[in-house]
Design a protein around this nucleic acid. Structure first.
Lengths: 221, 221
DNA sequence: GTCTATATTCGGATAGAC
DNA sequence: GTCTATCCGAATATAGAC
């Protein structure tokens, strides 16, 4: 391990390419060209293309989860007995949105890479993504404890929608910018996070009429 | 043209395979095997793999847009001068969600194929997807007319989030089912559409605090 | 229009020198 | 650990018989 320059050059180059094109469309030759290393180095360091992808994904997923959990724990600690649901949502949405829209280019690539990889059907990724459900469960549990009076179904749908907005904002922020004629400000990262938190919070907390009727709003706090 | 059985067999087989695996992972050999036709038939009928994909995507996108616009026009006609925003959102979310979660297997594959294809980086698709922004603009305009007092920015973000929830529900309904321990009922399609409409309606209509403070809800209707 | 057979390209992986 | 050269399989595309 240690500080292997070749190794990390491959990882960062692969991440940047995978952020914009799918797994099948990026060849090892593309990667080594971008990294400025030799073709054989990939197999030497990682064994195969699949294993390179798996290691990259696992590494980023671990880092993202660490950040999310740190914020979740902080929110739970700050809330004492009853954690604020919006603080939980903020711990979920904050890290990936800040990664994607923040100034750090590598972090931004990492966020886009991860959302792209999460729909990839390649075996090594599927396995890791499925294991990732357990991390979501931590957030679901936190929300259930924070909103014990709510129907569990609303909690899960709210989580589902929160993830939807996070993903869409990571993958399609450019379309939003174009569609809005640059009206939507994608530089104010905190405002975007609050917007997602606000909408997801509504999804969690409001009554959603089964059919036809408009939803009524239960004001909390 | 006419009723070419081979042609349509290829299209439906390709659609079903693309619904579950990405473009690069489905070979022409997979497609012709599933369709029960000869390998050379693809190039004879479509010219190339890319052109097959493009024709398939264009065909489905056209059908989906037709359905969405029919509902949009009906909503606008029913509303007279002032169209109900939720009816507009229903015209956006209803067709794809019904396709995906309804009983028609081919339609379901079509919905999943389209969301998968829309993130594909292959040239023929990119072109069509980008042209698709104009269809979204129709919905954005309808919402602007329906909510003239709202900040345009909220309209665009609401549309963005609506598309996010639609996409996530199409691609990740299984994860939701698993995460919720089968609590979330994915068979009640109308209830799901109403839930999306409800949350997207909130995104459109409520104040989203710039930072920190909880959002306040403006009750409509 | 449909088939078989084949040309051609491309990409992942590896052998073996240094 | 790094390089060159090469192998091998897979997949698209096509030529040409039927």
């Amino acid at each position: 391990m240690s500080t292997d320059l070749t190794r990390s050059a491959i990882l960062t180059a692969a991440e940047q390419l995978y952020a914009e094109r799918s797994f099948g469309e990026v060849s090892l030759r593309d990667i080594v060209a971008a990294a400025g290393v030799n073709l054989a180095a990939v197999n030497y360091h990682f064994g195969s293309k699949d294993e390179l992808l798996a290691e990259l994904f696992l590494s980023r997923a671990t880092a993202l989860n660490r950040e999310r959990f740190a914020e979740l724990k902080a929110a739970e600690a700050a809330g004492g007995g009853r954690t604020e649901p919006r603080a939980i949502l903020r711990a979920l949405a904050g890290p990936p949105i800040r990664w994607c829209l923040g100034a750090d280019r590598q972090r931004s690539a990492a966020a886009r890479f991860m959302t792209r990889a999460s729909v990839e059907t390649v075996p090594p990724i599927r396995k890791i993504v499925e294991r990732d459900i357990s991390h979501l469960r931590r957030f679901a549990d936190a929300l259930r404890r924070a909103l014990p009076e709510r129907d569990e179904v609303d909690i899960y749908w709210g989580l589902h929608f929160a993830l939807a907005m996070i993903r869409q904002t990571i993958t399609d922020s450019n379309r939003l910018r174009k569609l809005s004629g640059d009206l939507c400000d994608l530089d104010d990262v905190d405002a975007i996070i609050e917007r997602i938190v606000s909408v997801a919070g509504f999804a969690l907390s409001a009554q959603h009429a089964p059919t036809g009727q408009p939803a009524t709003v239960s004001t909390r706090r």
